[in-house]
Simulated scan of single mutants.
Amino acid sequence: MSEFQITGSKSKWIVLLVVTLVIAGLLSPWASPHPDGLERVAEDHGFIDQAGAVHEWAPIPDYEVAGIPWTAVRVGLAGVIGAGIMAVVLWASMKGLASRRGKANAQSYGDGARQL
């Protein structure tokens, strides 16, 4: 086997992905309504009114998917989309790192065998 694997069980990863997406979708609507980060600082220091409009190309402005009449569904769907994007980014990163590590091990051991 020449491919580096994080785990041999794909079903565990699929279950974790599904659980993560379900939790993101169900719990996102009940996230804290209080401002965070820069928005909180802007409120504390009195320059919140200077904020401009959200950019028209923003994929999920204000953490809500536009065009859906129910707030809980708009926010829940935004949570699912965000978790899905992060899953894809993490998967691609790990695949790239595993691929590089596998190539480095193959070069280190000459015949492609890996040392345990």
Rank of each mutant, 00 (worst) to 15 (best):
L90S: 06
L16P: 00
Q107N: 06
P29V: 10
E64K: 15
A98H: 11
D111G: 15
A78H: 07
T20H: 04
L77C: 12
V41I: 15
R114S: 12
D62S: 12
L97M: 07
W70F: 10
G110N: 08
A87V: 05
A24R: 11
Y63K: 11
A87E: 01
V54F: 01
G82F: 05
V19L: 15
S93H: 09
A78N: 03
V22G: 03
E64A: 15
E43S: 05
P33V: 12
V18H: 02
Q5T: 15
H55L: 02
L26H: 10
D62G: 02
L116T: 04
I23V: 13
G67H: 14
M1Q: 10
E43W: 05
G46S: 05
G102L: 00
E56W: 11
V54E: 01
L77T: 06
A42F: 01
Y109C: 11
V89N: 03
D62I: 10
L90W: 14
A31V: 01
D111C: 11
R40C: 00
G102I: 06
I85T: 13
A58R: 05
S2D: 10
R114G: 06
R74I: 00
S9R: 06
G84D: 03
K103H: 09
H34M: 12
W30G: 00
V75W: 05
V19C: 12
L38I: 07
L21D: 03
S32P: 07
E56C: 02
V75G: 02
G96L: 03
L38C: 04
P33R: 12
S93P: 00
E43T: 03
A78I: 01
G82T: 13
A51S: 04
V19Y: 09
L26K: 10
L26I: 13
G112Q: 09
D49F: 02
V54R: 03
L16G: 05
A66S: 15
F4T: 06
A78G: 03
M1Y: 11
P29R: 12
A83T: 04
H55W: 14
K10N: 08
P61L: 10
I48M: 04
I6L: 12
F4R: 14
G67A: 13
W70Q: 09
I6Q: 08
G25K: 13
G67V: 08
G84S: 09
E64I: 04
G102C: 10
A72L: 02
S28Q: 10
P69N: 09
G76F: 08
G110I: 04
S32L: 14
K103G: 00
G112C: 07
G79V: 01
G102E: 12
G8K: 15
D49V: 06
P59D: 13
A113V: 02
W30D: 08
V73R: 00
V80T: 11
P59K: 11
K10D: 07
A78P: 13
Q5S: 14
H34D: 06
F47R: 04
A78W: 07
A66D: 12
W13M: 14
A24L: 07
P29F: 09
S11L: 07
A42P: 02
W91F: 15
L97N: 00
R100Q: 13
W91M: 09
V18A: 15
G25I: 07
R74C: 00
D36K: 07
